[in-house]
Design a protein around this nucleic acid. Sequence first.
DNA 1: CAAGTTTTGGCAACCGGTTGACAAAACTGG
DNA 2: CCAGTTTTGTCAACCGGTTGCCAAAACTTG
Lengths: 367, 367
Amino acid sequence: MPWQPARFCCHPVYDGAVTESTNSGAAAAPAKRGRGDKSAATIYDIAKVAGVNPSTVSRALSKPGRVSAKTQKLIEDAAAELNYQVNPFARALPTGRTSTFGLIVADITNPTFFDIIRGAETTATVRDYTLVLAESAESAVTELTAARRMMATVDGLILASPRMDDDDIRTLARDKPVVVINREVDGVPCVVPEVRKGIGEAVRSLAANGHRKIAFVAGPPKSWMSARRWEGVRAACDWSRLEAVRVESSKPTVDGGRQVARDVLATDATAVLTYNDLLAIGLMQELQAGGMVVPDDISIVGFDDIFGADFTTPPLTTVRSPLGECGSGAASLLLDLLHGNGDPVGTLRVETELVLRGSSGRLAPKG
Amino acid sequence: MPWQPARFCCHPVYDGAVTESTNSGAAAAPAKRGRGDKSAATIYDIAKVAGVNPSTVSRALSKPGRVSAKTQKLIEDAAAELNYQVNPFARALPTGRTSTFGLIVADITNPTFFDIIRGAETTATVRDYTLVLAESAESAVTELTAARRMMATVDGLILASPRMDDDDIRTLARDKPVVVINREVDGVPCVVPEVRKGIGEAVRSLAANGHRKIAFVAGPPKSWMSARRWEGVRAACDWSRLEAVRVESSKPTVDGGRQVARDVLATDATAVLTYNDLLAIGLMQELQAGGMVVPDDISIVGFDDIFGADFTTPPLTTVRSPLGECGSGAASLLLDLLHGNGDPVGTLRVETELVLRGSSGRLAPKG
DNA sequence: CAAGTTTTGGCAACCGGTTGACAAAACTGG
DNA sequence: CCAGTTTTGTCAACCGGTTGCCAAAACTTG
């Protein structure tokens, strides 16, 4: 066996005893064939019932208008009667179409992706597609492996915040349609939040509250998004004649936020913008633990508006990226690509906006 | 077209202009066939290279020990050289096996499921299976539809906090292996957190801090889990000679928690246990907004220890359900079932435990 | 070394739809 | 009413593995 059996860390109790139910065969012997116990209806069964040739059934069911209205009706009735469902594998084998697409996220733990997953899943379901999910564990290699594996079974792929090279992405995109979220790759359709507006609002808000020096806590060094956000902060600060300094973080998590607190204080900036909300939350926790009051002593602004950003005290001011939209937008883009209009390799830009909550504001007068 | 095109709510800008890249054919014309542009290698290609019969290749690749060591080697080398990958559809068609299983959750928005998804996904990947995700939007009908649809394409199914009838679940389980999380269904393997220990710890902790009357904010009326938790609270309170009162909530969300605040106050309990963390967080926000201090004026204990439960001020005391374990446990159970040992229809119980944080404690002396 | 036993490999049918090529039928217009 | 055109239906090959059955090869044993 190539895999290690999964282990529990908390001593779960497995009571081998069968529950007191009669257990009358249910769930005991899974059916051998692909479909249910009663071998499911095929187009041949329909053909027999409707008195036509199987291929006629196939055409009636897949390409509308190819058969006469009355035959169509006949076949549809027969299909309904037998409650027929196409066998996706039989269909996929000759056509290569699977009505399925993949979504690879860097880290399922990271709430940033929750909304993306949700948006993509919703759109997939609405358009009669199935979403297959995989995680890359923040590793470029794992990501590429997962992507390759998926390519065999899906019609297209969405990469959310991919870690692999541009070239790898383009190579994948040569095989099947690929859409990238949170990064721009030449020649590949992308969905990216446009940071300018949101950051502009954030910086203006801070400037209006008298802040003069702003620290930006950066994300992973190779993150495309982190670079864009830092650019955005710098540009907005230039515009508002504020000073901007950059601080590096070890990892874009709550823990990373706690760790970076010293460095942030060392800059003596009075306001901080972070690469993402997790960093902001960790940073705020650490600063508060050290006795600072937010926003009286320091203002904190996060990025993304993830689930839980408003659980903190004070609730986190943040630049919202419409993550759900990114997910559904990417899915729409991909499905459009799959349904013919394959050309428009463009970038879908979604707007960001400032969500003003309690963690930013005017400095309390020194006393 | 049966579907409505997905719409954006925030006026995203689609710049039809092709990015300044040369766009040299990349991603423009997706390959027609199922695999990559170069038609992928098949067992027939391998057979030709290795100089054996295709069926020998099939056997060498799928059932170890069925061919001689040297032939095996020959074939493996040829496969590696052509970098062959099985076509999952071709394999699924005759066998019905897909190396895929489904996971249906009630609500992708609900962070309770994040860890479950993650656990299941991780285990799936480790054991070379693919996870397919679907959401039921809290509707029993949608859930059943999704389940039926999935049954055609997966080897087994995991239902997390299902909303459908026991009988529907058993019917599904007759077709393919099904594992249920967060609910017990006779004759179907289940994974449930055992609430007694965690609730016991919570109630004893509250009792030790001088609380005499505890309110339980219930979840959805038909939730199996909510009933178990209420039972657990009542039993633990009896044991510790505390009074337990039950309060109904409208929905198990942050908002529902806010709404239930009045009713909780009306009970004049000094401590509250809620059906889940979202309710606890909403309740705490509302009480704090009304000027109450947690835990000085009232203690709050949540359930599940979801992501973000420690973002609040004070951080939330909660009874942790090992959700990740539930997900991976269910996946393991399912895969074991799929790999032969099909019999043990039992219940996997995972332990809960109290996570003591700041939202519970001793009442401040009245002043 | 021959007879008996076990491996190993090859053939061919099969899974269930799809699709190009073609024949039959229906319809058009002169 | 017939030639020409369009619609509708049929046939058969194909997608790429899997597997039961049997023959050939390799190995054991008396």
